[in-house]
Amino acid sequence: MARNFFIELEKILYQKDILQKIYDFNNFYENFKANLYTFDHSHQAIINENSQVKIIHPMKIRRPKEANSTLSLAKILHSVAHIEYSAINLALDASYRFKNLPLNFYQDWLEVADEEIKHFLLLEKTLNELGFKYGDFHAHDNLEKALFLTKDNLAHRMGIVHRGLEAKGLDANPFVLEKLKTTNHPVKCLFDEIFTIILNDEIKHVYKGNFWWNFAKKENDNYIDLCKAYKEFSLLGKIYNKKARIQAGFNESELKELNNLYNKNGG
């Protein structure tokens, strides 16, 4: 008997054991690619708290300015690992929550989840080499908040989360890498490869967000207006990665508007 795509994905999305979650997803993804699931779009999605770390307010998180100790290095890596783990859930949630869409929508976001898992595992392995693991430090829940606030609107989810917050990761990538490379720890040799993989994949992810934002938005919807409506989120870095954003689907005039919106003081 064929299994329902959404019911099976719900189990994975809310699985608390990380290794089990990844194992289950890998099996699910192979079955999906083999066309073994049915799509019952009458399925009603649920929304649950889904964090694996202790959450505190972003302003209470002390971010090391340099990786000048093993602890500082681990904290920086952990913050990136948290973003990647959250991104797994965001991609799974998009596939799970939004119904009656073309098959390639589900293909896209499962592919994103698969790549986010690979990013997370690369970072988790490096954390382990430092003597730490994911969950050892506090984190914020900005991505989870964005997931909740956009749970009923596909255009908003694609625009704010996958075209917005994920694109901000493109801005941060080179600066995080530069900070990590201030360490003298032997794991330093891994960072260029890991962060190049992440950057190249994230460009593709934001491009998918751009595609599905354009698919889902209404004719008169304006991206800058959407950003203003979600003013609790900043969706552009103070110094933004123009090259990566252009590759991901932004245009120059739009980037100028975003810069005027978020960096009015020239930050």
Rank of each mutant, 00 (worst) to 15 (best):
F39M: 09
D171N: 14
Q52E: 13
E193A: 04
N214D: 15
F233N: 04
Q52R: 11
F211S: 06
E257D: 01
V112W: 12
N68W: 12
I224W: 00
E144M: 06
W212N: 08
K243I: 03
V206K: 02
H205K: 04
F98V: 11
N100M: 15
N35W: 00
D152P: 14
L13C: 00
H205E: 11
A248S: 13
L190W: 05
K181R: 14
E232H: 09
K242E: 01
H43P: 06
A172T: 02
Y106M: 09
N251A: 01
F211Y: 14
I203T: 03
E144C: 06
N50C: 08
V206D: 00
D141T: 10
N173W: 08
C189M: 14
N68R: 04
N31C: 05
P186T: 05
D225P: 06
K179D: 10
E254N: 07
T182C: 14
F25W: 02
N222P: 06
E219G: 13
H162V: 08
N220Q: 13
E252Y: 11
I18V: 08
S42L: 06
K125N: 15
G131T: 02
L110F: 01
L130D: 05
E257W: 05
M59Y: 05
N89K: 04
F28E: 07
N210S: 13
L170H: 10
F195V: 03
A244V: 04
A91G: 06
N260Y: 05
R62M: 11
T196R: 01
I7D: 09
N68D: 15
R157G: 07
E129G: 06
L177C: 13
V187I: 15
N153K: 10
A91M: 04
S42W: 03
N27F: 04
F215C: 00
F215D: 05
L122I: 07
Q52W: 03
Y262K: 09
Y96R: 05
K145C: 03
F5P: 02
I56H: 09
N200M: 10
I160N: 08
N128R: 05
L255I: 09
E178H: 10
N153S: 11
A91Y: 03
K60F: 11
E257R: 12
N222V: 13
Y29E: 02
D171F: 10
K243S: 10
E193T: 02
A155Y: 13
Y85P: 04
A94I: 01
L103C: 07
K217W: 02
F39P: 01
E252R: 03
Y106R: 12
I197Y: 04
L130G: 01
Q107N: 15
H78C: 03
V187Q: 02
K65N: 11
E66V: 05
I47Q: 07
A248E: 06
Y230V: 07
L199A: 08
F215T: 06
K21Y: 09
K60D: 15
L123F: 09
I224T: 02
S72E: 04
M158D: 06
N184V: 12
F195R: 01
K133G: 14
A81D: 04
H156E: 15
E166V: 01
S86A: 00
L236I: 13
E252D: 14
L36H: 00
E144I: 11
Y262I: 06
L101T: 07
L123H: 10
R245N: 11
F25Y: 00
H156L: 04
L19F: 07
A91K: 03
E115M: 08
E129R: 14
N173P: 12
L180G: 02
L73S: 02
E166W: 00
D114C: 11
F215K: 12
